[in-house]
Design a protein around this nucleic acid. Sequence first.
DNA 1: TGTTTGAATAATTGAAAACATCGGTCAAAT
DNA 2: ATTTGACCGATGTTTTCAATTATTCAAACA
Lengths: 209, 209
Amino acid sequence: MINADKKRTQILEAATRRFAHFGLAKTTMSEIAQDLSFSKALLYYYFPDKNTLYAAVLEHVINQSFEEIEEALPSFNGCHETIMFVLDRRIAFITKYYNLLEHSISAVQQTPNEMASVMADSKVKEKAIISKILQRGVDTGELYVEHMEETAEIMLFALAGMRFSILKDLNGVLFPTKEEFDRILSLQKKMATIFLRGLEVRSASDPQR
Amino acid sequence: MINADKKRTQILEAATRRFAHFGLAKTTMSEIAQDLSFSKALLYYYFPDKNTLYAAVLEHVINQSFEEIEEALPSFNGCHETIMFVLDRRIAFITKYYNLLEHSISAVQQTPNEMASVMADSKVKEKAIISKILQRGVDTGELYVEHMEETAEIMLFALAGMRFSILKDLNGVLFPTKEEFDRILSLQKKMATIFLRGLEVRSASDPQR
DNA sequence: TGTTTGAATAATTGAAAACATCGGTCAAAT
DNA sequence: ATTTGACCGATGTTTTCAATTATTCAAACA
């Protein structure tokens, strides 16, 4: 019971280390079991199959990142600096867990639905965070946003564009360098700055479009 | 001589039809030859190899689209409406020649360098068009742009983000529907509107950041 | 009863072989 | 200078088979 949860957690952590380093395909259930000196069959007592375990790792890691971000949010007051902080953390997260996310990045093979729902959930939360930040800007009279949901989505898509565009012409290279991630972050910050400025409320002499 | 160019053009046109419909891999040199009742060897008299022929088709089609856009540009005066027009044409182009561009979209296999240079050239021209439009806005005092090159690139990346994001979760489906392209266009227009607003010059009481 | 395991089975993968197709060449014809 | 049919080697496709790996399960254990 209490011990059972502990075993589950151990498995989750060992799996995280393996998956984060080698990815889904290059990690076997036997290796995870060996790392813990458990029998392979035990993994199946706690997780129905490999994909579910992978999805659990993904979910755990993603939630951890979100919690970290969300609990830091209240300490900021300006809309702009809040977004800059979020961008910093997002890139740090992607850099750290690139292998883990590789699956969702390459749109080649169809993603197993266990992971699909995790990623979908992640998208929703991400949009919620951006919405919350923008909403705060609206509340302080700093910003004007007509359709909050759609605007947040557009902003996220635009930010993703920086990532895609930089990583795309990185033909075939397995792991992007720190320089590339830095470039992505730099462009994302500039892009977000212009975008936010485009949402700012202006003086009466210079009305909304 | 005069006849030779005609043959070359015929081959280019037949190849365009085949490639645009079936893509590079699913089109054989024999098929193109058969469409024209030429011998396969004749294709190699006019084009050194398949990749070069494909690149020539790509270049031809892309240049055609650019010319069309560029000759229409002077008829617009507002920065915003010019961009809207460009976005319209870009999506129309991508919709029409989706199979042809498929190669550059999926970052899986490495692109042959013949095509890489064509695509690189296309990127440069695209950036030049955006720069030109923004520059016009700067000249009329409508916009303020500090680093023109980089800003144009960011805008293009952000627009690409709409495309990538919509088409990515379209898992495995070969050909996107008209609805998806419409959605892309719609988001791109909204995104561009906010972006341009973020570059607008403001009254003295509401200064640049 | 809730956990854990070793061993067996089912599914997947990867390499090898056999085969077909296609890109590209060339000598000869016009 | 242009065009072709016949040819060759590379590349891709299909099939097969062995090995690896995921998954199950009856039995042991605590």
